[in-house]
Amino acid sequence: MTKYLKLYSHFLKFSLSNSLQFRFDFTFRILMDCIFYVVNIMFFKVIFAHTSLLGGWTEEQVMIFVSAHLIVDALQMTFFSNGAWMIPVYINKGDLDYYLLRPVSDLFFLCLREFALNSFVNLIIAVVISIYFLTTSTIDFEWWQILLFYLLILNGSYIHLLIRIITITPVFWTHSGRGLEMAFWTLERFAERPDTIYKGWLRYSLMFILPFIALCSFPTRILFGESLLEVLGYCIGISVLFTFVARFLWKAGLKSYSSASS
């Protein structure tokens, strides 16, 4: 464990010194995500010009949900995204070789190597946005609800990574492109809307097959007095289950990688 903490401190050090090399790029990227935030909030502002409730949630509630979504996005961008982006490239080029030789977890290395400082700035902005919506809300929250809200958001960005890895693993067999990852980035948009609007089979799919509504929608529910155990059980259950699924597929993929190459 201390070994991994030490390794991560090195990752942090390298990423920090690298990220400030390109100052324009750095500021542009922060600005880019800010525009993303504004567009997301404005989208729901327009929607609420035509309705008073969305899937049973008021505008206040939906705004808190949006801020949760922004945090999940910023978290995964800060910690995982840049590293995980290279995985399909490494698989295709056969560059996993050295990762297989090191006495350290390959997924740890691949997913956490790049810390994006620019996204970390966005993460702070997103957290501030959420605090703003929480404090201006007319709903009363208990302190533990807020704590659980943020914890489940962390859990949500972890599930985001898991689903992403799962959609990358087909690359091990197809040997081309990014597998289903591009589909993942499209389907991820289901997470951008409150889960209460989805009905029927789609709802079950989004709960258990591609659990996008566990990213930010369910964590938001914890604030609105819903059954605590149900929400907690579901979110944690999904992250445990998908940890196993992702690990299993990754292992199978590595096995294929090592039997297919020469």
């Binding site: 929607i47 969305l54 589909a183 499209t186 948009r189 289901f190 951008e192």
Partner: peptide
């Protein structure tokens, strides 16, 4: 196929979002 996924997602989200609004209003 990729583009097919984009279109289906777009329709899927729109369907549920707007039917929920039409219903509640």
């Amino acid at each position: 196929l990729q583009f097919g996924v984009v279109v289906c997602t777009e329709i899927g989200i729109a369907y549920y979002l707007w039917s929920s609004i039409f219903e509640s209003e």
